[in-house]
Design a protein around this nucleic acid. Structure first.
Lengths: 210, 210, 210, 210
DNA sequence: CATGAATGAGTATTCATTCAT
DNA sequence: CATGAATGAATACTCATTCAT
């Protein structure tokens, strides 16, 4: 130590666009690719930048560390799913719950159908990374979305607590089945069967508590 | 790893095992405690032995490394749960599925009721640690157990594939709800509500596909 | 480094130098400010340009690196002091040594009085930075100046070696007391007391060896 | 990030003796040797352990980092000097100040005579490393010692503030001359001349203010 | 002239693991 | 069987410096 710590504002800038977008994107893609190949713990920053084709320093220009990059990937993907779900619900508001749930199921499966491997990596990463807080936060976002789903249904008349519980259970069921299907099958999830199982499980549960 | 036994099979303890048993146990307990406090990645071997009150070298007398210790903890706990489940089913073979499922639910909840914090740590650990292979293996064991559950029911007559699918969905639902309840609530899971949710979800699903 | 001049020699400023002068000046001032706040080792180029409000690349337009900037700051300041000292001596040549020494003391203290904080930073920097060579070089310049001081006195008649030794001791005493006063007191040096101490110490020493 | 920060006591042990003493000693000696050879900033931890003949990890077993090691070296050496000084004064209490000052000068010079190169490194290191706080602290310790010197003299009767000022000036003079002699001459300080200069400077100053 | 995104050389530091006692 | 000092492989990360715009 040579001097006195003092209140000098620590500057930290984030690049804005174009080139930035490209580099950051490349790093994210490299990361996901490596994630599938060798698992989170085994990935080094040097590998990520090697695969991304950027310099080592560039990594730190865009992300704090490996966890930060992972969190960004996780967040972007689940946010997109959330939006898909919301859009599907909005387009079908007022219809009976059975139809709306079907619509939500299909919306989610469509998203997963497009990139099954990436989703596999996503669920893997999520299991590995989440602190309890991050886990809860993400979960709550989806539960809130499910409350919206039930609200949108024309034939659901449950009070607040009941509805929230049902939303939580629905989210747990769909998340469990979808995640398990993508985790348990190495890259070739049977989305046909998954669709049926989801309908049976969610339909059965909601029919019971409705 | 010699000297470690699942808590159900109580062997005659030879005097010389006594200290060994004690040390291994202490290490496991220290590990679980640290797991809850700071998360898997942040735990070092040095900390484990410090908390356990043993020497650094002793750790390596009992475990290969941190992962090994984690795997042992994970394995012992889930094996015990599996045995509880099996025993409950065996004692109620032939009864209708709704009753047997209730029995299974209660068996699992009893186990969780006894050590809610430890189970929270268990689910945390499992999320963090599992490689896809380990995950599948563990899952398959439980699915097989659920096939047994359905077999034991007097009123289930589904063919093999159908039955296996149902077993998988049941396992996913119960695992998802139980794990989420223990992860999402910081140490104070509402097992009352969980019990009801499980009955509704499993009952609803099975009623649908029965 | 072109465009930088010691404050005493005021050259005609060509328009095109204006911005350059400004940028270089801003960098120096930012550096000195940071030096006081957090110490040499902790300062990064990025911080300097952030505080100076210039671009990162601009730093390298004016300085080779951090050491270069430091050396420039150090050199400018001590050169100015040297010139002040010389001017004071020249204006009082021929008078008895006691008076001339008083004049030199006052000249130095005047310079320090004007910017006590900057001088604190200067001594800090000097301690940190100087290689033995740089240290010796700077010291020799001041010792030579002190030889001039003794030469200018009408009542000193010592031979070369004796005179050089006396000059060295004088420089060491004045440097030590002034530097210590600025280093040891956080920004509020008691220059009144320092003046008295310098007169006593230098006067006492020279009276002894005269 | 994988978990929750929590209040688990961070264990840090320090080896005690024998082997410990040896390793720590070797590291200190290697450091001093490198310090003379290439200067503080250029030294890497890897070099230190290479010269010391220990493993890389061992360095961190005994020191926090390079600064920590430097501080320890600095502290040990100046503490030893302080003790020498004190002992010399104690053995001559009551005698006139001129004699006691001579004794102190000789005590310090004896210490420096024994290891002129190491003392050169010491002054170099001190200049490089000291934060203002560390600087002040060390200085104050020596000033307090000088108060003791003046107290021990049979013929000094100054009041507190006056005495403290005189002590500070004496310390500054002796420190300045000794340090400069060791810094300015590459390893071959003329301690004969230094002794004379110290007597003249301290004697002259004290005679003036006495 | 000014800028700041990109770069990677260079090091500190951690922490699992060994093995002599 | 237990211990903990010694070890060094493995990596994260910083920050000076460049150069295309």
């Amino acid at each position: 130590m040579t001097g006195v710590r003092a209140p000098v504002a620590a500057p930290r800038r984030k690049p804005r666009q174009s080139r930035a977008r490209h580099t950051s994107q490349a790093l994210q893609e490299a990361f996901v690719r490596l994630l599938v190949e060798k698992g989170y713990a085994a990935i080094t920053i040097r590998e990520i930048v090697a695969v991304a084709g950027t310099g080592l320093g560039s990594f730190y220009e865009y992300f704090e560390n490996k966890d930060d990059l992972a969190r960004v990937c996780l967040h972007l993907r689940s946010k997109a799913l959330l939006l898909d779900m919301r859009a599907a619900v909005a387009a079908n508001a007022g219809r009976p719950w059975r139809e709306i749930v079907d619509v939500v199921i299909e919306a989610q499966l469509d998203a997963h159908r497009a990139q099954p491997v990436a989703w596999g990596a996503h669920y893997l990463l999520e299991r590995h990374l989440s602190s309890p807080e991050a886990y809860r936060k993400m979960y709550d976002r989806f539960v809130a979305e499910w409350v919206g789903v039930l609200d949108a249904a024309g034939d659901v008349k449950a009070d607040g607590p009941k509805k929230k519980e049902a939303a939580r259970v629905c989210q747990t069921i769909i998340y469990g089945l979808v995640a398990h299907t993508h985790l348990g099958t190495g890259g070739r999830p049977d989305l046909q069967a998954l669709s049926r199982q989801l309908r049976d499980a969610l339909g059965g549960y909601l029919a019971t508590v409705a």
